[in-house]
Write a protein that binds this DNA or RNA. Structure first.
Length: 682
DNA sequence: GCATTGTTCGG
DNA sequence: CGAACAATG
């Protein structure tokens, strides 16, 4: 069934030939132009870090080699605008079809939607596929057609869907190459000279590329998987799957992972191997978290820069560059934290447990704004992944409905006992502590002077004293929380009294070039209970996940706004705005940031409030809140639609499973950061 | 042995 | 907070 079709297969983060639906569709239809476009400027501040680029380079080479054995090769383009590059490829090859697999980060959502529009307008047939998830975000909904708001409910549903995730596709046997003689490849540069030395080391530990990913998967399933539940508490052990960078670049399909792992589970269940079965459940949960991160990103496109629960915008972050630096360098005086940070710097890798330790320390002990930490992870992690990392940091920061509570400080000393009982991990990464006996390895500040001397340690000199005592940290955190609640309450009452601005928030400024964290309004009613419009289509349909595809749903409910305007805004302009505005800005002392206000805000002020609470006069809410947003000064918004998707967290009677009963039960308090309480404050 | 209280931990 | 688990009597 070949014929006249010539398809561009646009590779992005699906760098594999196996179980690649876009590629498979192209092969089925006829000739293929395989394209990769390197347009990092489109990513704005999320320009990939050094190790991430190193991985990408290897992975592309690997993919190209595979494609060559199948009969074609990878065309590479350097671009500042993916869509114009696609148009060029269309022109130079005569392709009449564009095929790609879905992505769910906010920038891709907008760009891909536009790609589809633009190319379709040029007469190109555009098709897109799910290659990254077990189920598309819009397939997983509660009984009333709304997205789930807690991981557990989400994952339960995924595991009990009436249909299984698609079975993985085999790699094509042969590919018919289109004529690309007039479509030259650009040489892509992923590292500069200064980076080469550091990168050379990476190759010793990692082998990017889809067939290596496949080997890693097999090795994991036949090895560490069965012990996964026993070993997961150790900082050090090589018991994790090490699949995350492979998964990030789509070198291996989660569907394949899922199916293979499930088969093992069935096997072990039949053998009565309880712990093996449990191991699979735990491992699948981590796969589920990855799914959930995409789900959240799709439903809440702001989630990588705004807390999902709005109270955090009143949190008095300590905007202290020197703390930040100490953390990065692994000189906090807490051995487990420092070991983790040194490992991260040296290898681009951290065990999940240690990620939680260091990020939790960052947020709760140092009180630094979580997005700084997230950005640092982005820059340094080999498996840096915007959606997963945003979810992780939000979890740590207590801004997810089912995340950790913010007022609980984990003591790195005790975590050390748990995750690194023999101190091996600390000794490996902190040579200056290598001679300290295990008894003191996680709290050298308590060690007798003689012990320290024998170990060659002089605290405050060759290893620091704790930068903040844990008791002091607890007090500081409590103080910060009570300030946060006061601000929150004052601001709310100011708004209710009709003051235009509420109170200026104390929120994170926009350091490190990151956008200011502003509204995630607490007081908007979620009104998305319209299952009818939930997009349900067949698997190979034309649906591109995009802001606008989600917009469909509230369009119907929302009569007071100019829809065309809204949609236009969210599509074309947004990504450009992001790139333009989110650049490094000098930070000012008190977090007052001057940054260009993004156009979309002004063109679309009324959006939030049209959905807004029923018991508040619309106009009031409208003006105050939109004003605040502007006054905040720094609000890169790439789609007005996005805020819409977060208000479900804020409502009281949106019937999210058990949550409403929780709501009834817990009275408001200024002590606890807890979404249930928060929701009651409305 | 089992009910009771304390502790840990949770996506 | 509440569930699960541990220590305790």
């Amino acid at each position: 069934m070949s014929g006249g079709r010539c398809s561009i297969v646009w590779f992005r983060r699906d760098l594999r030939v196996e179980d690649n639906p876009a590629l498979a569709a192209g092969v089925r239809a006829g000739a293929i132009v395989a394209v990769f476009i390197w347009a990092p400027e489109e990513e704005g501040v999320y320009y990939p870090g050094r190790v991430s680029r190193w991985w990408l380079k290897q992975s592309l080479a690997h993919l190209d080699a595979s494609l060559r054995t199948l009969g074609t090769s990878l065309v590479t383009k350097r671009s500042s605008d993916s869509i114009s590059s696609l148009l060029e490829v269309v022109k130079s090859t005569g392709a009449n079809q564009l095929l790609f697999n879905h992505l769910y980060d906010p920038i891709s959502l907008v760009r891909d939607h536009r790609a589809k529009e633009v190319l379709t307008a040029q007469g190109v047939d555009v098709r897109s596929f799910n290659a990254d998830l077990l189920y598309e975000p819009w397939e997983v909904r509660d009984g009333e057609g709304r997205p789930f708001t807690t991981f557990t409910s989400f994952w339960d549903r995924c595991l009990s869907m009436l249909y299984d995730p698609e079975a993985p596709l085999l790699p094509p046997k042969r590919i018919i190459s289109a004529d690309v003689s007039r479509c030259p490849s650009d040489n892509l540069v992923f590292e500069d000279e200064s980076e080469k030395g550091s990168n050379a080391l990476l190759a010793r530990a990692w082998s990017p590329g889809w067939s290596n990913a496949d080997k890693a998967l097999t090795a994991f399933i036949n090895g560490p998987l069965i012990e996964y539940s026993m070993n997961r508490r150790k900082a050090d052990s090589a018991t994790t799957s090490f699949l995350s960078p492979h998964l990030h670049f789509g070198e291996v399909s989660v569907r394949k992972v899922f199916h293979l792992v499930r088969m093992k589970q069935v096997l072990w269940a039949n053998e009565g191997n309880k712990s093996g079965e449990e191991s699979v459940n735990l491992f699948l949960k981590s796969i589920g978290l990855r799914e959930y991160s995409r789900y959240m990103s799709f439903n809440h496109p702001y989630s990588h820069e705004r807390p999902l629960l709005g109270h955090l915008k009143y949190f008095p972050w300590v905007v202290d560059e020197s703390y930040f630096k100490v953390w990065r360098q692994g000189r906090t005086g807490y051995p487990l934290v420092d070991a983790g940070m040194r490992e991260l710097w040296a290898t681009g890798w951290l065990h999940d447990r240690i990620r939680v330790v260091v990020s939790s320390f960052f947020v709760k002990v140092l009180l630094l704004p979580w997005r700084w930490g997230m950005k640092y992870f982005w820059d340094t992690l080999l498996d840096a992944d915007l959606e997963s990392d945003a979810l992780g940091w939000q979890y740590i920061s207590g801004t997810l409905p089912d995340g950790r509570e913010l007022d609980r400080i984990d003591n790195p000393q005790f975590e050390g006992y748990k995750f690194d009982p023999n101190g091996e991990y600390v000794r490996r990464w902190l040579p200056e502590l290598a001679r300290l006996p295990t008894e003191w390895i996680h709290h050298p500040w308590n060690a007798p002077e003689s012990v320290l001397q024998a170990a060659g340690i002089e605290l405050g000199s060759n290893y620091p004293l704790p930068i903040v005592e844990i008791d002091a940290a607890k007090a500081r955190l409590q103080e910060a929380l009570s300030q946060m609640w006061q601000h929150e309450a004052a601001s709310r009452s100011a708004i209710e009294n009709g003051m235009e601005e509420g109170l200026g928030d104390t929120s994170e400024s926009a350091p490190l070039g990151l956008p200011e964290d502003t509204q995630m309004e607490m007081d908007h009613e979620p009104v998305r209970n319209n299952p009818v419009n939930t997009v349900i289509r067949r698997y190979e349909d034309q649906m591109v996940p995009s802001m606008t595809s989600s917009l469909v749903r509230f369009d119907d409910e929302e009569t007071s706004i100019d829809r065309r305007n809204l949609a236009d805004d969210s599509r074309a302009e947004v990504p450009i705005n992001v790139n333009v505005n989110v650049t490094e800005e000098p930070r000012e002392p008190h977090g007052h940031h001057v940054m260009q206000t993004v156009r979309t805000i002004n063109t679309f002020p009324q959006f939030n409030f049209a959905m807004g609470q029923r018991d508040t006069e619309d106009s009031t809410a409208e003006s105050s809140s939109s004003r605040r947003e502007r006054d905040g000064g720094v609000v890169p918004v790439w789609s007005p639609s996005s805020s819409n998707f977060s208000d479900q967290f804020t409502g009281e009677d949106n019937g999210i499973g058990t949550s409403s009963s929780y709501l009834q039960r817990h009275p408001q308090s200024h002590q606890l950061v807890n979404w249930r309480r928060l929701s009651q404050t409305g």
